[in-house]
Design a protein around this nucleic acid. Structure first.
Lengths: 287, 287
DNA sequence: GTCTCTTGTAGAGACTCTGTATAGGTTAGG
DNA sequence: CCTAACCTATACAGAGTCTCTACAAGAGAC
């Protein structure tokens, strides 16, 4: 951004309203920066400058919370993540999370983008460094959203990746969605032995256990242990490694790949197997 | 620091309030020194002088400047983490971070606690589930603090765990401290191939590369590659796997195990090897 | 084509910010 | 009593920002 252009946008469209120092120098806020970011992205998608500015300001005034991801935002995220552009990526995620319900943001933007990066990494089009940078940044954001997800009064679910499994981002997303359905989340993460998850389950008096993996064989390796767990809690498996056949064999629930569907399955499934009405009053809110 | 500059900061921003001798000479306190240190670091990360000074004083007024961890807080954290008590752990960390400078919190509470959990896990006194729960929770907090650590105008350092290495929490802490000394951080995290880190280094025009591992053999496996990197940037190795001998052989800097010492080493080492004064006049404004 | 509107860019002249320097006097310590 | 370092106060310079005006390339409309 050139200085002149910034001035032009300020005077012509009132896009920015920086404070001033005593001497008259402009002091921009983070919000100003976000506006500029948004403006540029809208320009990129073909709007005229005047239109773009109007849109930015309108969006802001409306505080839009739609269920469709803003156009171009995934591309913007992709660019930022692959270019190691930390501020850019954060700004884009800020915009994403503030413009769309969490579930949509995760399902339609964050997870697809992560999958896409994973695919391109496998194809050699993206370096490990880019993939690592992206996952770490996104993981940080997700864990920030996760804060407090074990608080409250709902039923508790224990979430873990099966032994050997390192893909945890999908599971965190699932936990976030589950949380929004009122569950309390005890998150154990990557590469967790079933035995130790079982003890956490017992200790925390959780009513559900969610295990995920992207590889089928990781499930088969622990099938018996998972089956045993079924006596204590509702067991659900998910991830691309989870199959109908596998679930049947270990008496587990097969979670749909969509976050919301999966979470809803677990919610209704668990209440059914507990033989009671869902105590729906125990919902809780999380930022 | 030139004498004149110190005076200027004192009179212009009231950054310092030294006592005086009878004759009128200034008597600076340790707190004054710390303020100057912090001010310089903020300047390095791109703030204008006026902004930086305001920030320093505000931080101080907010009260986070003690350098001893409140009694019992580590025990509290330990209890919460091992009991899967998420709200409790967050509350304790809140208290920790708000009562103590970041460096102290990390060095004297967070890292020791994590190490202790690791040790007890190795001894079979702590389950994998407990260890996972603790790392994930702490990682989330650290990454939240890390937000924006690549922003600004200082020199940039690329941080990575060597191939096979999964212990990333210490590295994140190191990054946070480095950031406070004015560096910009490009964080790649666990298990990063040197080759791909090298390309990130080139692409981001970073001037330092920090590699860590808890096992010596992981360094020896990539010694040649690390040595090559030395042509492009200051290379530093750290973690319990880093040895004097190893560092010597690959022409790298050996980082002290203490966070602050290590970061300071890198700061002075890098500026020395760049053969020039730190570009201290590179002031810039940001809201 | 010609005219008008939009929009990014540029320059002049004054001012701000901030690190540095100078002048003239004072203090500390041997 | 001498010298180095410190004191206050003021000044300075370079980089950057301020306002205001202008300008040129492109897009439509007629």
């Amino acid at each position: 951004m050139s200085v002149e252009l910034l001035r032009a946008w300020e005077t012509r469209y009132r896009l920015l309203r920086p404070k001033r120092t005593v001497g008259g120098f402009r002091l921009y806020s983070d919000l100003d920066a976000a506006r500029v970011q948004r403006m540029r992205s809208l320009l990129g998608s073909g709007l005229s400058a005047a239109q773009a500015a109007r849109t930015v300001l309108q969006e802001e005034a409306a505080g839009t919370h739609s269920t469709t991801v803003p156009l171009g935002i995934v591309g913007e995220l992709d660019r930022a993540l692959l270019a190691f552009d930390e501020p850019g990526a954060h700004a884009t995620l800020d915009r994403l999370f503030s413009s769309v319900v969490l579930e949509t943001a995760l399902e339609d933007a964050v997870l697809p983008e992560l999958r896409s990066i994973g695919d391109r990494w496998a194809a050699g089009e993206v370096t490990v460094a880019q993939e690592h940078f992206a996952s770490t940044l996104v993981r940080g954001r997700l864990l920030a959203l996760a804060r407090g997800w074990d608080q409250g009064r709902g039923h508790r679910a224990v979430l873990a990746c099966v032994p050997g499994e390192l893909h945890d981002l999908g599971l965190i997303c699932f936990g976030l969605v589950l949380r929004r359905q009122g569950w309390r989340i005890l998150y154990l993460g990557q590469d967790t032995p079933i035995e130790t998850a079982a003890s956490a389950l017992k200790r925390s008096r959780a009513t559900a256990f969610v295990a995920v993996s992207v590889e089928r064989r990781r499930f088969t390796a622990v099938a018996d242990e998972l089956a045993d767990l079924g006596q204590r809690a509702t067991v659900a498996i998910g991830g691309t490694g989870a199959t109908k056949e596998g679930a049947r064999r270990m008496g587990a629930m097969l979670l749909a790949p969509q976050l919301i569907t999966g979470a809803t399955q677990l919610t209704s499934g668990a209440s059914a197997s507990l033989g009671g009405r869902r105590e729906r009053t125990a919902t809780a809110r999380s930022g």
